[in-house]
Amino acid sequence: MAQRQTSRGRAQDRAHVAGGQDHEVKYEAKKEGVSKDVVEKAVKSAGNSRRKVEAEVGRH
């Protein structure tokens, strides 16, 4: 998957959820219609792949 450059020239990978980044967890929780806790647990059990996290969240 291609990475996009940020305005600061850094690579940004949208295929992963950074579980330690509060804003990413909030975004994913809002997008999926679940709580932050559910997303954090999904990241811990499924890893940080966005596709796997979304599948794990869909099971709850």
Results as ranks from 00 to 15, higher is better:
residue 41 K to W: 05
residue 3 Q to G: 08
residue 21 Q to T: 06
residue 43 V to I: 14
residue 19 G to N: 07
residue 5 Q to G: 04
residue 50 R to G: 04
residue 23 H to K: 11
residue 52 K to V: 00
residue 38 V to I: 15
residue 60 H to I: 09
residue 11 A to I: 09
residue 54 E to D: 02
residue 18 A to P: 02
residue 10 R to F: 11
residue 33 G to P: 03
residue 42 A to P: 03
residue 21 Q to L: 09
residue 57 V to E: 00
residue 30 K to P: 00
residue 51 R to E: 14
residue 5 Q to M: 12
residue 53 V to P: 01
residue 60 H to N: 11
residue 47 G to W: 06
residue 13 D to N: 15
residue 46 A to N: 08
residue 58 G to E: 02
residue 12 Q to H: 13
residue 44 K to V: 10
residue 16 H to Q: 12
residue 44 K to H: 10
residue 50 R to Q: 09
residue 32 E to H: 04
residue 51 R to V: 07
residue 49 S to T: 00
residue 48 N to C: 04
residue 48 N to P: 04
residue 29 A to C: 06
residue 57 V to M: 01
residue 12 Q to I: 13
residue 28 E to A: 10
residue 1 M to H: 03
residue 44 K to M: 10
residue 51 R to C: 00
residue 9 G to I: 04
residue 14 R to D: 14
residue 4 R to N: 03
residue 1 M to Y: 01
residue 7 S to E: 14
residue 1 M to F: 02
residue 44 K to Q: 13
residue 38 V to K: 05
residue 48 N to A: 07
residue 53 V to A: 04
residue 40 E to Q: 13
residue 8 R to C: 09
residue 26 K to N: 11
residue 28 E to P: 01
residue 16 H to L: 15
residue 52 K to P: 00
residue 10 R to C: 09
residue 22 D to Y: 02
residue 17 V to A: 04
residue 60 H to W: 15
residue 12 Q to T: 10
residue 50 R to K: 13
residue 36 K to I: 09
residue 35 S to C: 08
residue 45 S to A: 13
residue 32 E to N: 13
residue 16 H to K: 13
residue 39 V to I: 11
residue 46 A to P: 12
residue 44 K to P: 02
residue 48 N to H: 12
residue 41 K to E: 14
residue 14 R to W: 11
residue 42 A to F: 00
residue 59 R to W: 04
residue 41 K to D: 15
residue 14 R to S: 14
residue 28 E to M: 14
residue 60 H to C: 07
residue 12 Q to S: 12
residue 55 A to P: 02
residue 55 A to N: 08
residue 57 V to F: 01
residue 42 A to S: 15
residue 21 Q to Y: 11
residue 57 V to I: 15
residue 3 Q to D: 09
residue 17 V to R: 00
residue 59 R to I: 05
residue 21 Q to S: 09
residue 48 N to F: 05
residue 55 A to K: 14
residue 37 D to R: 09
residue 56 E to D: 06
residue 40 E to G: 06
residue 34 V to F: 03
residue 40 E to W: 05
residue 43 V to A: 08
residue 51 R to T: 08
residue 22 D to P: 05
residue 12 Q to F: 15
residue 28 E to S: 05
residue 41 K to L: 10
residue 7 S to N: 13
residue 11 A to L: 13
residue 16 H to T: 12
residue 53 V to W: 03
residue 28 E to C: 09
residue 44 K to A: 14
residue 12 Q to D: 11
residue 32 E to W: 00
residue 34 V to D: 02
residue 30 K to M: 05
residue 11 A to E: 09
residue 35 S to K: 11
residue 46 A to Y: 04
residue 47 G to C: 07
residue 44 K to F: 02
residue 29 A to G: 07
residue 57 V to H: 00
residue 20 G to C: 01
residue 48 N to Q: 14
residue 35 S to L: 06
residue 28 E to V: 15
residue 60 H to V: 14
residue 30 K to N: 07
residue 39 V to C: 06
residue 9 G to W: 08
residue 39 V to T: 05
residue 10 R to E: 11
residue 42 A to L: 02
residue 57 V to P: 02
residue 8 R to H: 12
residue 13 D to T: 08
residue 3 Q to N: 10
residue 48 N to W: 10
residue 52 K to C: 01
